[in-house]
Amino acid sequence: MAISFVIDPSIAPCFSFSSPRTIPLRNLHFHGRPISPLISKPNLRFPIFSAHQTNSEEANSKQQADVNTLIRSYKQALFNGDETSVAQIETMFCKIEKEKNKMDQKVLSLSMKIASEKETKIRLQADFDNTRKKLGKDRLSTESNAKVQIMKSLLPIIDSFERAKLQVRVDTEKEKKIDTSYQGIYRQFVEVLRHLRLSAIATVGKPFDPLLHEAISREESEVVKAGIITEELKRGFVLGDRVLRPAKVKVSLGPVKKKTPSPAEEITPSS
């Protein structure tokens, strides 16, 4: 006997049907196995997963079992020609599909939110690293500027030591002891400055360098060629690679070039 049923038009869109269709079940077989009816009542409810369940493995397993049971019930209803149960199950399938679409949209929304937050985190981390580097550079620059100012304030003291050293005349034993104490203090002071990378600028015998030297005067020299420093007038200092004070020097102009007299000058007037 041929068995057929009509799918409800309101349910058809879930199954991509454009109009009511009659499906013959004449050739529907389940490998020759008899299947006992799973639906005995028209209003039988079939289990469907709840939106309140968590994403744990147990909940996923339960949901899969519910869907499998619903599919088996649907097949049995088709086999039995129970149109009422088929319509109910198809309604449930539609609900499941809608729920799935909602969950897909939610997953997509959460994925986009996670990607956005990840991008924000990366940007904030980059800003933090840049700020930390900038603060480090600013700190080093501040320390360097402070060190420069301190060293500049010590330069007059160094000048005073140098002048005192030139003016001291040692004639008595007492003066020798005073000079020895003075020289010891000065050596300690110089050692501390050297440790802080303060050093004097080389001058006499060196080529004039406008970045290191300040030419106070120039003089002719038969011995020293032009552009060479002949005398240091005031000592200059550098702190590391930074000039604290240029050295004031005298620079040689080289040997004097005698002016060759012109032919008119060589002719002397006759008396």
Results as ranks from 00 to 15, higher is better:
residue 103 M to P: 01
residue 4 S to F: 09
residue 83 E to Q: 09
residue 57 E to M: 13
residue 271 S to N: 12
residue 40 S to E: 06
residue 105 Q to W: 13
residue 218 R to A: 12
residue 236 G to P: 09
residue 221 S to T: 00
residue 81 G to P: 01
residue 164 A to Q: 12
residue 269 P to V: 15
residue 193 L to A: 09
residue 225 K to P: 00
residue 128 F to M: 14
residue 110 L to V: 15
residue 72 R to G: 07
residue 250 K to N: 07
residue 255 P to Q: 11
residue 46 F to W: 12
residue 148 V to Y: 08
residue 259 K to I: 15
residue 87 A to R: 04
residue 119 E to K: 09
residue 179 D to H: 13
residue 220 E to S: 07
residue 30 F to N: 01
residue 49 F to A: 14
residue 28 L to A: 10
residue 243 V to L: 04
residue 147 K to D: 08
residue 269 P to S: 08
residue 55 N to S: 06
residue 87 A to D: 10
residue 39 I to H: 01
residue 259 K to W: 14
residue 28 L to K: 05
residue 198 L to F: 04
residue 250 K to S: 10
residue 181 S to T: 08
residue 35 I to P: 09
residue 88 Q to E: 07
residue 112 M to W: 13
residue 177 K to M: 11
residue 110 L to Q: 15
residue 153 S to V: 09
residue 231 E to G: 02
residue 227 G to H: 03
residue 103 M to I: 08
residue 270 S to D: 03
residue 191 E to A: 09
residue 120 T to V: 08
residue 123 R to C: 12
residue 125 Q to Y: 02
residue 86 V to I: 13
residue 135 L to Q: 14
residue 107 V to S: 05
residue 130 N to Y: 04
residue 78 L to K: 05
residue 23 I to L: 04
residue 186 Y to V: 02
residue 78 L to P: 00
residue 194 R to C: 13
residue 156 P to C: 05
residue 93 F to D: 03
residue 184 G to T: 10
residue 244 L to M: 06
residue 172 T to E: 00
residue 189 F to T: 05
residue 152 K to C: 13
residue 109 S to Q: 14
residue 126 A to K: 11
residue 112 M to A: 14
residue 258 K to S: 06
residue 60 N to D: 06
residue 7 I to K: 08
residue 125 Q to A: 12
residue 217 S to D: 07
residue 130 N to D: 07
residue 57 E to R: 09
residue 211 L to P: 02
residue 110 L to M: 15
residue 11 I to P: 14
residue 114 I to Y: 09
residue 203 T to G: 01
residue 260 T to K: 12
residue 9 P to T: 13
residue 98 K to T: 11
residue 243 V to G: 02
residue 220 E to L: 04
residue 227 G to I: 00
residue 4 S to I: 14
residue 221 S to Q: 00
residue 84 T to G: 05
residue 267 I to Y: 06
residue 104 D to K: 08
residue 32 G to E: 08
residue 47 P to V: 14
residue 229 I to K: 06
